[in-house]
């Protein structure tokens, strides 16, 4: 009887310890789920939000200052010139008829021995498309929300593409304003860009639209090294 009693006590004790450990483990698992990676994302998104707010505030400031400057240059002709220049340098968001071209990596599996690089989008693919659009008379172009201006670069940055020093991953959305028919035909041309890219299964989708909005250039427009050459010396 006493041995039975002893075993009962020991079993209860062991079961208690086991129960304790089970719930502890459960708590650890819960903690882990709500810990590091999650906190990291939260932190990053919070920082992103703050930075975006700062950016918006700064943009507002820029707009205000420009307004003030515009008021000072009351001359209508100079104001018109400024407007024209701003338009040309991509400082203004533009809208008009055009096309939206969406490019995504190939969905088909590469054949054995094939160069896998051929199945993903590279900077030169994008450059070809943009070049074609420019040749077809596109007046304003943006890639994934980045306006292309005279100093814009398009280059591979690891698995992403960098435009205006902003990286983005596929799919890429190219917006171009211009004559819809011409723009579309320039890409769909026989033996043209679209056909070449589709050989590798790269998905290229052209969507014509009556109103395409191309955002303004968000970078800074000041020159650090270049300054106007004096007319006389040249």
């Amino acid at each position: 009887m006493s041995s039975l009693r002893r075993s009962q006590i020991s079993i209860s004790f062991v079961c208690m310890v086991l129960g304790f450990m089970l719930t502890m483990q459960f708590r650890i698992a819960m903690d882990q789920r709500s810990s590091l990676p999650y906190q990291r994302t939260e932190e990053l998104s919070a920082r992103l939000l703050q930075t975006e707010k700062e950016r918006d505030a700064l943009q507002e400031q820029v707009a205000k200052l420009e307004e003030a400057a515009a008021k000072r240059t009351a001359e209508p002709s100079s104001q018109q010139t400024i407007q024209e220049l701003r338009l040309r340098s991509g400082q203004v968001a533009l809208t008009g008829p055009g096309v939206i071209v969406t490019i995504d990596d190939s969905k088909i599996a590469s054949k054995a021995g094939d160069n896998q690089n051929l199945y993903i989008i590279h900077d030169d693919d994008l450059l070809k498309v943009i070049n074609e659009l420019r040749a077809a008379g596109a007046e304003a172009i943006s890639v994934n929300g980045q306006r292309l201006v005279a100093t814009s670069e398009i280059r591979c940055a690891g698995p992403t593409l960098s435009v205006n020093n902003v990286r983005s991953a596929p799919p890429y959305e190219i917006r171009a304003i211009g004559d819809v028919q011409t723009l579309e035909n320039s890409l769909r041309m026989r033996g043209g860009v679209m056909e070449t890219l589709q050989v590798w299964g790269i998905q290229l989708e052209i969507q014509a639209s009556e109103s395409v909005t191309v955002p303004a250039y968000k970078g800074i427009g000041t020159y650090q090294y270049a300054r106007p050459a004096e007319e006389a010396s040249s």
């Binding site: 129960g19 089970l22 719930t23 650890i28």
Partner: peptide, 18 residues
């Protein structure tokens, strides 16, 4: 006793470090 242990574990003020 399993239940008692579980309750104890749930409300114990100690936590195992990650």
């Amino acid at each position: 006793s399993l239940a008692i242990g579980a309750v104890l574990g749930a409300f114990a003020p100690i936590a195992v470090p990650v």
